[in-house]
């Protein structure tokens, strides 16, 4: 899964997609995950990272993670598989 290369992520939680001109707002953990995705981490790596840092169990996070990924897809922030 590849995050669009040219999107701009700001630390304050904003994302700008220059190809569509759309802007998005994220909460801090959303920014963290999006950044990890952009850096090329896979789901396993992201899950390990998050459950180590936050008070959350694996299955709840996975549930939330898939939901988040679905929203990224819906907003076309994920590049179509080659």
């Amino acid at each position: 899964m590849n995050i669009k290369k040219d999107i701009a992520i700001s630390d304050s939680g904003f994302v700008f997609d220059p190809t569509t001109g759309e802007s998005y707002s994220l909460n801090p953990i959303g920014v963290e995950i999006l950044t990890l995705l952009k850096e090329g981490n896979d789901q396993q790596e992201i899950t390990d990272f998050i459950i180590q840092r936050y008070e959350i169990d694996k299955s709840t996070f996975e549930n939330n993670y898939y939901d988040f990924i679905n929203m990224l897809k819906k907003f076309n922030l994920i590049e179509a598989e080659a």
């Binding site: 904003f14 994302v15 759309e22 802007s23 998005y24 707002s25 994220l26 909460n27 953990i29 959303g30 963290e32 995950i33 999006l34 998050i50 180590q52 840092r53 936050y54 008070e55 959350i56 996070f61 939330n64 993670y65 939901d67 988040f68 929203m71 990224l72 907003f75």
Partner: peptide, 14 residues
């Protein structure tokens, strides 16, 4: 100490 968790969310800004 672990941080308080909140689920990741993204909203389009209209």
């Amino acid at each position: 100490k672990k941080q308080k968790y909140e689920r990741p969310i993204i909203n389009r800004i209209s």
